[in-house]
């Protein structure tokens, strides 16, 4: 089966996010009631093969541990694993 995986990598909870602070300040200047605790990270998206979503999810977290996230300063979470129907087997 073919899956589309999305993995988010964000600063650890409670860490200062200067990019988030800058975005929040700019949004406030545009008239949005200033969002609090805004943080900025990365979203990785890719296609994977696997027998079920859980296997694909575990592989995504293993990829985060190996390279995509630095556990000293970041947290990784799988946003979703969606089956791609009609994809070639």
């Amino acid at each position: 089966m073919t899956w589309r995986v999305r993995l988010a990598v964000l600063p650890l909870e409670g860490m200062r996010s200067p990019e988030g602070d800058t975005a929040a300040a700019a949004l406030a200047a545009l008239g949005f009631g200033p969002p609090s605790g805004m943080t900025v990270g990365k979203l990785y998206e890719w296609t994977a093969e696997g027998d079920d979503a859980e296997v694909v999810r575990r592989q995504a977290m293993a990829m985060a541990e190996a390279l995509l996230a630095n556990p000293v300063s970041e947290r990784a979470e799988v946003v979703d694993v969606r089956e791609v129907r009609g994809a070639p087997a």
Binding site: M15, S17, P18, N70, V72
Partner: peptide
């Protein structure tokens, strides 16, 4: 060297940004 695990900690974005 930090990313390689040879030194502790991480170097993250400056506060304030820039």
């Amino acid at each position: 060297l930090q990313e390689a695990g040879l030194l502790p900690g991480a170097l993250v974005a400056n506060v304030p940004a820039g």
